[in-house]
Computed example of a mutant assay.
Amino acid sequence: MTTEAERWTPPSGRNAQLQAAGRWWDVVRVPRFIGKRALELLGDDAGAVIENPFDGVLYWLIVPGTAAEWDLSRLPSVEVWGATAYIEVPSADCRRGPGVRWRVPPRDRYLTDPAALLAALLTATREALGPREGASR
């Protein structure tokens, strides 16, 4: 069965496009200093990742609604954006340059498994910021 998420493709051409979250994917917005470590932890399990060097953030794309139960108090620098958010999505082949680009380009899949991403973010956050109060170890 084909879902809306499976039909999405990044923009073609030379320019990035502003696209709405919540239909094909939700966005997990992570500061670069935490996101770089999360990428290392995920390895080949990372889906496509957008880098916005102007804001110093990385964006992971996940199935809409799958992070609704995340306890973001354990991830104080992480935000999950859904249907009310728009992000700049680079063209399919934009991997360098001064603007928004693919840190991990879309391959056979562009979505990251939310459970794997959550585990990587919890570890990366704990390493960068120390343990959070009330967080299980």
Score class of each variant (00 low, 15 high):
Gly130Lys: 07
Val28His: 06
Gly99Trp: 01
Thr3His: 04
Glu4Gln: 11
Gly43Lys: 03
Thr123Trp: 09
Leu61Ala: 12
Leu122Val: 11
Trp25Glu: 01
Leu111Gln: 00
Gln17Asn: 00
Arg7Asp: 03
Thr84Lys: 14
Thr125Glu: 14
Leu41Lys: 07
Val30Leu: 05
Trp70Lys: 12
Trp60Ile: 08
Pro76Asp: 12
Val57Ser: 06
Ala92Lys: 07
Val78Gln: 14
Glu88Met: 09
Arg109Leu: 09
Glu133His: 00
Ala48His: 02
Leu42Gln: 00
Asp71Thr: 15
Glu51Gln: 10
Leu58Gly: 01
Pro114Arg: 07
Ser73Trp: 10
Glu133Lys: 00
Gln17Asp: 04
Arg14Val: 07
Trp81Thr: 05
Arg126Ala: 15
Thr112Cys: 00
Pro106Gly: 08
Ala128Trp: 12
Trp70Asn: 11
Arg14Asn: 09
Leu118Asp: 13
Glu6Asp: 15
Ala83Phe: 15
Gly47Trp: 01
Val57Gln: 10
Gly134His: 07
Arg137Ala: 14
Arg132Phe: 06
Ala16Trp: 03
Pro64Tyr: 04
Thr3Met: 05
Thr9Trp: 09
Ala120Val: 02
Thr3Arg: 04
Arg96Glu: 15
Leu121Ala: 07
Leu111Pro: 01
Asn15Phe: 14
Leu18Ala: 15
Ala124Ser: 13
Pro90Ala: 00
Glu79Ile: 10
Ala135Leu: 08
Leu111Trp: 01
Arg29Cys: 11
Leu18Trp: 15
Val80Ser: 12
Val57His: 11
Ser73Glu: 13
Leu58Ile: 02
Ile87Tyr: 14
Arg74Gln: 15
Ile87Phe: 15
Thr125Ala: 10
Pro98Trp: 10
Gly47Leu: 04
Ser77Met: 09
Pro90Phe: 06
Arg7Trp: 01
Met1Arg: 08
Arg96Thr: 15
Ala21Phe: 01
Arg126Gln: 14
Trp60Ala: 10
Ala46Val: 06
Gly130Asp: 05
Ala16Glu: 00
Leu111His: 02
Ala128Pro: 12
Arg23Pro: 04
Trp81His: 11
Trp102Tyr: 10
Val28Ala: 02
Pro106Met: 08
Val30Cys: 06
Pro10Cys: 04
Ala48Arg: 05
Ala124Gly: 13
Gly47Tyr: 01
Gly97Pro: 01
Ala120Asp: 03
Ser12Cys: 05
Gly134Ala: 09
Glu69Ala: 14
Thr123Ile: 15
Leu122Thr: 12
Gly13Tyr: 13
Glu4Phe: 08
Phe33Val: 11
Val49Ser: 05
Tyr59Ile: 01
Pro53Gln: 09
Ala20Phe: 06
Gly130Ala: 07
Val30Gly: 02
Arg29Gln: 13
Asp26Trp: 03
Pro98His: 11
Pro131His: 01
Asp45Ala: 13
Ser73Asp: 14
Asp108Gln: 13
Ile62Gln: 10
Val28Leu: 05
Ala135Cys: 00
Asp26Lys: 03
Glu88Lys: 09
Val49Arg: 07
Arg23His: 13
Ala38Asp: 05
Trp70Met: 12
Arg29Gly: 03
Pro106Tyr: 07
Pro131Gln: 04
Leu42Phe: 02
